[in-house]
């Protein structure tokens, strides 16, 4: 058990989450991908706290990451609800106005 192994685990979770965020058509599944990416960041932050800088600020970074995860999910679902009410859109391909 060392820093590199933890970072490898974090990288794997981040890569899987990135695959989901890029490949999924459903907005809900896309948000699951983003959550997995943050999951990887939590592992990396905890490992850095343990192996590199075991100071309290490292733990605060994990708290910040958890708040970001909560905010991301809440705002994401609120946006999905708003866009579904307005335009019956629940797939990313149907909300590609900025792409055109």
């Amino acid at each position: 058990m060392n820093l590199e192994l933890f970072l490898l685990l974090g990288s794997s979770l981040l890569a899987i989450g990135l695959y989901g965020a890029l490949s999924q058509q459903s907005v809900v599944m896309l948000m699951m991908g983003l959550e997995l990416m943050f999951n990887g960041l939590v592992v990396a932050a905890a490992a850095f706290w343990y192996y590199v800088a075991p100071v309290a600020e490292g733990q605060v970074l994990i708290v910040v990451l958890m708040v970001v995860m909560a905010v991301e999910m809440a705002v994401g679902f609120a946006v999905v609800t708003a866009i579904f009410r307005a335009r019956d859109v629940d797939m990313t391909d149907m909300a590609a106005d900025l792409r055109e």
Partner: peptide
């Protein structure tokens, strides 16, 4: 495309993980 981007990201991160000379624990 998504698979190749995520595999590429993992490869870059994994390479960086083993190539970077991480500092010793402070404190």
């Amino acid at each position: 495309g998504a698979m190749s981007v995520s595999l590429g990201t993992f490869a870059v991160l994994a390479t960086g993980t083993f190539l970077v000379d991480w500092p010793e624990s402070r404190g």
